[in-house]
Simulated assay, not measured.
Amino acid sequence: MTFVTCRSDLKFLGFKSLRLGLQKTKILRCNANVQNLEYPANYIKLNQPKLWNGSAVEAESENLAPVWKTFILSDGSVTRHLQLLTGSKIDVDCLEMTNIGHAIEDMPSQASQIEGPRVRRQVLLRSGTDNIPLVYACSWWNASQIDKYLKDKAKPIWASLSEGHIELYREVLEVHHGHSRDMEAMLGMKGPFWGRHYIFWHKQQPLTLIYEVFSPHLEEYLGPTKRL
Score class of each variant (00 low, 15 high):
Phe3Cys: 03
Val4Phe: 06
Ser8Pro: 01
Leu10Gly: 11
Lys11Tyr: 08
Phe15Ala: 09
Ser17Arg: 11
Arg19Phe: 11
Gly21Glu: 03
Leu22Arg: 13
Gln23Glu: 15
Thr25Met: 11
Lys26Ser: 13
Ile27Trp: 10
Arg29Leu: 11
Asn31Pro: 02
Ala32Asn: 13
Asn33Cys: 07
Pro40Gln: 03
Ala41Thr: 07
Asn42Lys: 09
Asn53Met: 09
Asn53Ala: 10
Ala56Thr: 04
Ala59Val: 05
Glu60Asn: 10
Ser61Cys: 04
Pro66Ala: 09
Pro66Trp: 04
Val67Met: 12
Lys69Gly: 14
Leu73Asn: 05
Asp75Ile: 05
Gly76Tyr: 15
Ser77Leu: 08
Ser77Arg: 02
Ser77Thr: 10
Ser77Met: 07
Leu82Phe: 07
Leu82Pro: 03
Leu84Ser: 08
Leu84His: 07
Leu85Ser: 04
Thr86Cys: 04
Thr86Trp: 06
Lys89Arg: 08
Ile90Trp: 05
Asp91Pro: 01
Asp91Glu: 12
Asp93Phe: 11
Cys94Ser: 15
Cys94Asp: 04
Thr98Gly: 00
Asn99Pro: 06
Ala103Cys: 14
Glu105Tyr: 13
Glu105Met: 08
Ser112Asn: 10
Ser112Met: 13
Glu115Lys: 15
Glu115Gln: 08
Arg118Asp: 02
Arg121Met: 10
Gln122Ile: 05
Arg126Tyr: 06
Ser127Ile: 05
Gly128Glu: 04
Asp130Val: 14
Asp130His: 13
Pro133Trp: 15
Pro133Leu: 14
Val135Lys: 01
Tyr136Leu: 10
Tyr136Cys: 06
Ala137Ile: 00
Ser139Glu: 07
Trp141Glu: 03
Trp141Arg: 00
Asn142Lys: 11
Ser144Ile: 09
Asp147Trp: 02
Lys148Tyr: 12
Lys148Pro: 03
Lys151Thr: 13
Lys151Glu: 13
Asp152Met: 11
Ala154Thr: 14
Ile157Thr: 12
Ile157Trp: 05
Ser162Glu: 15
His165Asp: 12
Leu168Phe: 09
Glu171Trp: 03
Glu174His: 14
Val175Ala: 01
Val175Gln: 03
Val175Pro: 02
His177Glu: 07
Gly178His: 09
His179Phe: 14
Arg181Cys: 01
Arg181Asn: 12
Asp182His: 11
Asp182Gly: 07
Ala185Leu: 08
Ala185Arg: 13
Ala185Cys: 12
Met186Leu: 09
Met189Pro: 00
Met189Asp: 08
Gly191Phe: 08
Phe193Ile: 02
Phe193Pro: 02
Phe193Leu: 04
Arg196Tyr: 04
Arg196Asn: 03
Tyr198Leu: 04
Trp201Ser: 05
Gln204Asp: 09
Gln204Val: 00
Gln205Cys: 02
Gln205Lys: 13
Pro206Glu: 07
Thr208His: 02
Tyr211Leu: 07
Tyr211Glu: 14
Phe214Cys: 00
Pro216Asn: 13
Leu218Val: 05
Leu218Gln: 01
Glu220Cys: 05
Tyr221Met: 04
Thr225Asn: 06
Leu228Pro: 15
